[in-house]
Design a protein around this nucleic acid. Structure first.
Length: 489
RNA sequence: GGCGCUAUCGUCUAGGGGUUAGGACGGGUGGUUCUCAGCCAUCAAACCGGGGUUCGAAUCCCCGUAGCGCUACCA
């Protein structure tokens, strides 16, 4: 008999943004579900009402959807199952698997301090386990405040982790954890187990930081008479300092990567490779290839440092694979933000704009860089990079050469890359200088920078009128610059 | 402190008893009838330490060390 389709879940707590660690957890759940033909459930663990917000829920959903992590069931909200959590806790009380604890926080604190003063390790001392059920009920009915604790059985709790293999804990190290708080609200471990039972979750795939919760949850499953699922704990994602990734390390929210100009497929690919390897040398893989190759055997057990340089490189690879038309759409927000967008870019100048994106994409790593690099093509007023000016526009001959080039190009019959190149090289020959001595100043004049696509492609893309205007502007700029330099001497 | 997890180039990793320990990012160098942040070529760069097991260990076992995680009536 073949195993039933696996059911996995991603269970974020809406107390913060969807960070890359959470996204990676969600991603691995997705990969496993898709690979195995299973179901991915989304469950929002919003029981900490004080710290949760609808705004965060929206952000998390947006992040998942941007990355293409689509769930099959949910989103379910944990807070709506509170009745079931409480009922299960009470059932455990009924069966003697749990007991009421009347110890006050102050009393526990005092005992804990005493124990620690002796240099011993504190664990709840089970003071209330000794209470017989009659007394316990009496005190409860007399309205004495109490919480509910599970009675952790003797022995060992062992489970076979999907990534770490056999893992065992001595139950003596686990304290009788609280199931229901004094105010009656269920705690995390109870809610989590209760929901996973009701949602028929078969594989719990989550971060390494939950390893120590696992024996506690297994004990709850058993107390409830339910079969625990399989567990798989993914190693954590670290910052460059090898500490758990946090805001101190820069961008951690998934949506922030979108704003920075990353493509979702690049982040998807990068995150999949953080802690997992298909074996061999494959790196750039489509989503389908990743799903096809995914297996827990390839999931490593050591935590991985998030390397922004590699993500950026990967993004540039994905940028190159996109068409100019795609990029025009994708980069639109940055053009809008820079005030560079014109309606004709999707109308009469559509083809031109797409060609511009094609021209620029090889040198861009982020969508945001496309807008930056496109500026000189779209707008006559742009900044000159001071270093570029120093290097190529400072010589006494600069104005003369820019002007000569301007006149030459203005007098051309046709204007395309070939014509511009021939004209420039002829001019260089006539002036008795190397072509580079015209090309470099021209690059700065046309783009403001030292780096650009091939200069003749740039000229062809800009068109004669813009090229002439920019050469004029640069010549005026150099004159003014030299005059200012002269004055100051 | 207790419990747990982990340990191959700076980083992500492949390999898994016998290999010149492979790839990628990043870095260096050289080339590219115009630049490089593009492209091509090329170089440097690693099996944490100690004990076993074995003819042979980076690989298996143990110990140590280090890093990280958890240690809540947060999730």
């Amino acid at each position: 008999m073949s195993a039933a389709a696996p059911r996995v879940r991603f269970a974020p707590s809406p107390t913060g943004y969807l960070h890359v660690g959470g996204a990676r957890t969600a991603l691995f759940n997705l990969l496993f579900a898709r690979r195995e033909g299973g179901v991915l459930i989304l469950r929002v663990e919003d029981t900490d009402i004080a710290r949760s917000s609808q705004e965060m829920v929206r952000e998390i959903l947006e992040g998942l959807s941007w990355l293409g992590i689509t769930h099959d069931e949910g989103p379910f909200y944990q807070s709506s199952y509170r009745g079931q959590h409480t009922a299960r806790a009470l059932a455990m009380l009924e069966e003697g698997k749990a007991y009421r604890c009347f110890c006050t926080a102050e009393a526990i604190d005092a005992r804990k301090r005493a124990v620690e003063q002796r240099g011993a390790v504190w664990k709840y001392d089970r003071a209330c386990l000794a209470l017989d059920s009659g007394e316990s009920r009496r005190r409860h009915e007399a309205s004495e405040p109490s919480c509910l604790r599970i009675r952790v059985p003797e022995g060992e709790t062992v489970y076979d982790d999907l990534v770490h293999g056999t893992t065992s804990f001595n139950n003596a190290d686990i304290e009788d954890l609280v199931l229901l708080r004094t105010d009656g609200s269920p705690t995390y471990n109870l809610s989590c187990v209760s929901d996973d039972i009701d949602m028929r979750v078969t594989h719990v795939i989550r971060g390494d930081d939950h390893i120590s919760n696992t024996p506690k949850q297994i004990i709850i499953y058993r107390a409830l008479g339910a079969e625990p699922p399989r567990f798989g704990h993914l190693p954590l994602i670290l910052g460059a300092d090898k500490k758990r990734l946090s805001k101190r390390h820069g961008a951690v929210s998934v949506m922030e990567y979108q704003r920075l100009g990353f493509l979702p497929e690049a982040l998807f690919n990068f995150l999949a490779l953080l802690g997992w390897s298909p074996g061999g040398d494959r790196e750039i893989m489509t989503r389908e290839e990743i799903i096809e190759a995914f297996s827990f055997e390839g999931v490593g057990s050591r935590s991985a440092v998030f390397d922004l340089d590699k993500l950026t490189w990967m993004n540039s690879e994905y940028l190159k694979r996109r068409t100019g038309a795609d990029l025009a759409t994708l980069a639109r927000p940055w053009f809008d933000a820079e005030g560079l967008w014109r309606p004709e870019f999707e109308d009469v100048r559509k083809e031109w704009f797409h060609a511009l994106m094609e021209l620029l994409k090889d040198r861009s790593r982020l969508l945001s860089e496309l807008a930056r690099d496109a500026r000189p093509f779209l707008q006559p007023e742009f900044e000159y990079d001071p270093a570029a000016v120093d290097k190529h526009l400072k010589s006494e001959t600069a104005v003369g050469r820019l002007t000569a080039l301007r006149d030459t190009l203005a007098g051309l019959n046709g204007f395309d890359a070939t014509a511009a190149e021939t004209a420039l090289r002829d001019l260089a020959a006539r002036l008795g200088i190397k072509a580079g001595e015209l090309i470099h100043p021209a690059r700065v004049a046309l783009t403001g920078r030292m780096v650009s696509p091939g200069i003749f492609a740039v000229m062809a893309m800009m068109g004669r009128e813009a090229v002439v205007a920019r050469l004029d502007r640069a010549a005026r700029f150099v004159e003014a610059d030299r005059a200012a330099a002269g004055d100051s001497r």
